[in-house]
Every structure is written in structure tokens, then in C-alpha cells.
Design a protein around this nucleic acid. Structure first.
Lengths: 223, 223
DNA sequence: CCACTTGGTGAGTGGCACTATCCAATCATG
DNA sequence: CATGATTGGATAGTGCCACTCACCAAGTGG
């Protein structure tokens, strides 16, 4: 199919598709002549994934490119590709640099200790092995630091229920992932499901908050 | 305290504080003379909350203003303020407008049916009462629509584990909230905890994914 | 008393995700 | 073959948003 058809089928303007091609988010089409290229279903699927990452997952273009590059990096084996791709995903506000406190102020140090205790408490030794390198770990430390800086509770026992929920979510995630047999499908699914289930989860939490608030405080509370 | 001290104590530049004052995110200080104003601890606390909303929660300025306005709207009772504030929080990508499909294409309609069935299945009748008005509901429909458009599983039974997790999270959230006695504290805490626990939760999910992936597939997988 | 600081205002900056315009090569059609 | 539309690539521009800078008159402190 031509670029125009790719556009109508995906609902993305040709200008935007050209932009994605330039940015390396979409592999170039098979060149037919000097001025025409042919795209296939894989391009369409990739384009949809890119849109989902950017619009739903709010992943910046640069991170999306890293993720997608990792997905098709032939120099890595399946598991490494998966790891690299998810690793490159959204870091959230990394360490809030320059925000009054440096990277190792007392609050952040305390947050790190809390997080380490939490990970030990729930027996996630694999995660602890990675230490401060994992984006998710740093995101967690930053968030916990911000919470305590604001004076909100975030001791180990406060965080434990969230860790338990995270554990269940991960099991559900992996269950979904295991439906895919082909390595390529699994790679793309890992990225897509990680990102696209985030709004699902957050929305469900909000709705459940309203529900629970209503249950505890009566109509009108919560949301 | 003066603006400069507010700046050093919060780590936010005076220019940015002035900007927040202009935008109505921060109430004006008590005017001492024609060119000087006095700020207190409440301003500092509010400023920290604003920073947290914007930097950690990625809440746009305009939404933050709505939230904060609702928090101190004297024309509303406690519960209405709480509802309005949380209601104004982050919508995520609302209905992905103009993205090829309008607001009521077949995918979205199917997503709506799935979501309704899910809410009925977990017996959240209060949430269903609000229908399409609640931002969280619309976020959920959008996300589910995107998932199915990409060909990823999001049937009721696929979503159920996430709803269950959301329920547990909401209980944990409300437990944290109930520690606060003063209505004002509770209002601010509701907003802060809703927003600031989102990165905590997402980070824990990522870490747990890596942990679970390692457990199932052996070292190197997941993250 | 006078350099310095303060807080308010308007205009400017930088980043990012597009988007509009142009162009030569190519294709479809009479 | 003539010719007008279309294609894909390149470049520059747009709009938004969260700041940030420059300036200024009014006040303050040594």
C-alpha cells in the first residue's frame, strides 16, 4: 500500500507519518521507484503501536524510538530485547533534578532506604539486584521522596499494600503475555500491554476510589 | 516570609513562583506595603503540592488550578469539594479526538460495552451511575478501545484482575486518607495521595513484572 | 541618602509534536 | 505522447506549554 492508504487506514495524517519515518519510529517502506514506496500490514501495525505509545502512554518520541529499536535489534536475544525495550519506556520524573535538592539529599536517601526495606519485605530479590540502575526503581525512590517531602505517609507498611497489588498486576500481565507464542508478537505485546494497561489500571483505581468512598462516607464523597 | 525565602525553602525559582501566583496556583501573599508581600507556611505547603502535581503527576497548569480552586471553594461542602477536585485531575488522553475515528466508532462502542459489563461484574453500581460523565470512566473506555484496536485482549475476564487490584488499591488509599481528621488536611491528602501514589504503583508494577518474568522465564527476561 | 532588594508585568525562550509548503519524479488518463 | 494529479522527501513554520528574562517603581537597610 502507498503512504496515502497507510494514512487513511490508520487515521494518521500523511504529514505525521512522514514525520515518524524521518524520526525513525517507522521503518522506511520498500522503495518501488525513486519517488514511491510500498508499505505493508507490518507498517500499519507498527504505526498503530507508535500512536498508542505516544498518545495513550505519553511516551516521548525519543523514548519510543529507543523502545522500537530495541524490539528489532538483531544483536540481542529475545529476552535482552524485551528487557531493553521495557527498560527504555517511561521513567516518569527522573530524580526531579535541580528541584532545590540534588540527587542525594536526606529525603531521597531516606526514600531509598524505605524502598529497599520494602523490596526486601516482599522478597523481590531480583529487583534489588538491579539497584539504582532500573528506571522503575528510580521512579519509585523519587515518588516516595516527594511523598515524604510533602509530609505524606510512605513507610514500608504504608507501601506494602501497593506492592502486593503490583505483584498481582504483574502476574496478570505475564498471564496475558503468555498467550503469545511467536517471539515477535510477545515482544510487541510486552511493550503494548505494559503501556496500555497503565491508563486502564489508573482509571479503575479512580473508579474504585469513588466506589469505596461512597461505601464509607455515603453518597457524594470521593468522586 | 518573603518571596525570596519561599523560593529558597521550596527550591523553586522566584520567577516560577511569580508565574504560579499569576496563574492562580498560589494564593497571593498578605500585602505588607505596595511592593511587598508576606507568605507563610501554608503558602510553602501549597507550593510543594503544586510542584508535586505538576512534576510528579504531570498535571497541566490549567487542571491544577481547577483542582486547587475546588479545594478551597467555600460554596461547596466537604464531600463536594473532594469530588470536584479529584474529578478535575488527570484525564489521560480524552477520547483521542480526530484520531481517524470519531468519538463513537464501533471500537469505542464495543469498549463501552466491555467496561459496563466489567463494572457490573464487580458490582460497582455507584460508578455505573455516573456513566460517561466521569473522567475516569472515559479514560477507561478510551484505553480499552485502543487496546482492542491494536488487537490486544481486553475482554471482561482479561480486565477483571485489574479491577480487583484497583479495588484493593482504593481500599488502601481510603485507609491512608482516614488518618486525617481535619477536613482541610483530608482534602489536600486526597488529591496528593491520588496523584503521588500513581508513580509509586506503576513503578512497583514494573519491578514486579521484572521479578515475575525472572521467576517464569529465568534470568535476563522482563527487565 | 543611595545602593540594593522586592514584587508585579509583559515579552521572550526552548522543547516538542506535529503541520504546511514546496519540489522533482512518477503515475494515470485521454 | 501530453498533461494534470499524485507521491514521497526535505525544510521551515506553527501552536502549545511551562517557564524565564528584563524591566521598573516602590520600599528597605547601613
Amino acid at each position: 500500500m502507498r503512504l496515502a492508504e497507510l494514512s487513511t487506514r490508520s487515521g494518521v495524517s500523511t504529514a505525521t507519518i512522514k514525520y515518524y519515518l524521518r524520526e525513525g519510529l517507522l521503518p522506511p517502506g520498500r522503495r518501488v521507484t525513486a519517488t514511491q514506496a510500498e508499505y505493508d500490514e507490518k507498517h500499519l501495525q507498527r504505526l498503530r503501536l507508535v500512536r498508542a505509545l505516544i498518545q495513550v502512554g505519553r511516551v516521548p518520541i525519543a523514548s519510543a524510538r529507543e523502545v522500537l529499536t530495541a524490539l528489532e535489534d538483531d544483536s540481542l536475544d529475545h529476552n535482552s530485547r524485551l528487557g531493553t525495550a521495557v527498560w527504555a519506556l517511561p521513567h516518569g520524573p527522573e530524580s526531579t533534578p535541580g528541584d532545590g535538592d540534588g540527587g542525594d539529599d536526606p529525603d531521597t536517601a531516606a526514600a531509598r532506604r524505605t524502598v529497599d526495606a520494602l523490596l526486601e519485605g516482599v522478597d523481590w530479590e531480583y529487583a534489588r539486584g538491579y539497584g539504582a540502575d532500573a528506571p522503575a526503581y528510580r521512579m519509585l525512590v523519587t515518588a516516595v521522596g516527594t511523598l515524604s517531602r510533602l509530609g505524606y505517609p510512605c513507610a514500608v507498611e504504608d507501601l506494602a499494600p501497593y506492592a502486593r497489588a503490583g505483584r498481582q498486576l504483574a502476574v496478570a500481565d505475564l498471564d496475558l503475555l503468555e498467550r503469545y507464542d511467536s517471539p515477535d508478537e510477545q515482544l510487541e505485546a510486552a511493550v503494548a500491554l505494559t503501556v496500555l494497561y497503565e491508563p486502564v489500571l489508573l482509571a479503575l483505581r479512580r473508579i474504585a476510589q469513588a466506589e469505596e468512598s461512597n461505601r464509607r462516607f455515603g453518597r457524594g464523597a470521593g468522586e
